[in-house]
Design a protein around this nucleic acid. Structure first.
Lengths: 154, 154
DNA sequence: TGGCAGTATATGTATATGCATCTAATTGAG
DNA sequence: CTCAATTAGATGCATATACATATACTGCCA
């Protein structure tokens, strides 16, 4: 490898520092911390809050349908449900098929959500404070658009 | 629980569907897939590409310094380095301290990066296509701002 | 100089993530 | 009606993620 090759690689790496994927993951880590900290008194993580809320919004969904709505692999969701079922916040019931399993909140799950909601609102407000409400809303829109377009194309 | 309580919970959950944390994680999953698919011929994931590039940009960093620059927990980075060291793309060398360990690319790591760079550029271009170059750049800026503000505050 | 506070990294445990693959159940073509 | 293709979900494996804690080392102060 010559000196020139090495300098050229450095230039390319500087370009790669502007990676959109890295920007999204960095933000996801930082923001994840914020929500996790805020929700800790309720005993759940940000990921689990979203999952409980998604189940609560769509009564008795199948695992696959839920996974699609969360832009998540079915098998990932299948595993993510387990800690919440174990904790008694979610329950699984048989669906129309004998293959299908429907997910629903337990009473304890609803109770946890009620505890978590004001905590979540605080975290959400911190995000809005950091960016301003307008930029925060625009950001959510761009992220949603991005998730949708990327999936459609592949 | 009364009917009214239940309806009220539903209203709150509809509000929670606008969670910024969820929006970021959804996008991170979708975008992660895109980069992973694009980089597959190089034998690395998007996360690993970013890690190799970050190491290449800062010659001989400590683990902690690298973790900070990636908005990542030190212990997470410690583990994420292992597969890349095992694969021969990174090497660890002693630092000034006998506690510190410095991370550097191997020749094979540089070679892998050269293979990966055009693949990465394709994925990056797909993102720009999906949003338009201007919005994509703005999005990266907002995400970086968000990551920075959230960290500073806590 | 001896020990303690602080620093750098690694490890134990738990969740999150996805691909390849497996099992079970359903559906559809012949 | 039978069997292959499809569908729903779970599991094996590997990586990603972070907190609590352990380990090793450094530096400072009494």
């Amino acid at each position: 490898m010559t000196e020139t090759d090495h300098d050229e690689l450095l230039d390319h790496l500087r370009e790669a520092a502007g990676c959109s994927g890295l920007a999204v993951r960095k933000a996801a880590r930082a923001v994840g911390q914020l929500y996790d900290d805020a929700l800790a008194p309720a005993g759940i993580k940000g990921t689990q809050f979203s999952l409980l809320a998604a189940v609560g919004l769509t009564s008795k969904t199948s695992v696959s349908a839920l996974a699609d709505s969360l832009v998540m692999d079915r098998t990932t969701l299948s595993r993510n449900l387990q800690p919440l079922v174990r904790a008694g916040l979610l329950k699984m019931a048989p669906g129309r098929d004998r293959r299908e399993r429907r997910v629903a909140l337990t009473e304890e799950g609803r109770s946890t959500l009620r505890t978590a909601l004001p905590l979540w609102r605080q975290a959400q407000a911190r995000i809005a404070d950091a960016l301003g409400e307008g930029r925060a809303a625009r950001l959510r829109g761009d992220l949603a658009w991005l998730a949708r377009s990327v999936l459609v194309k592949s």
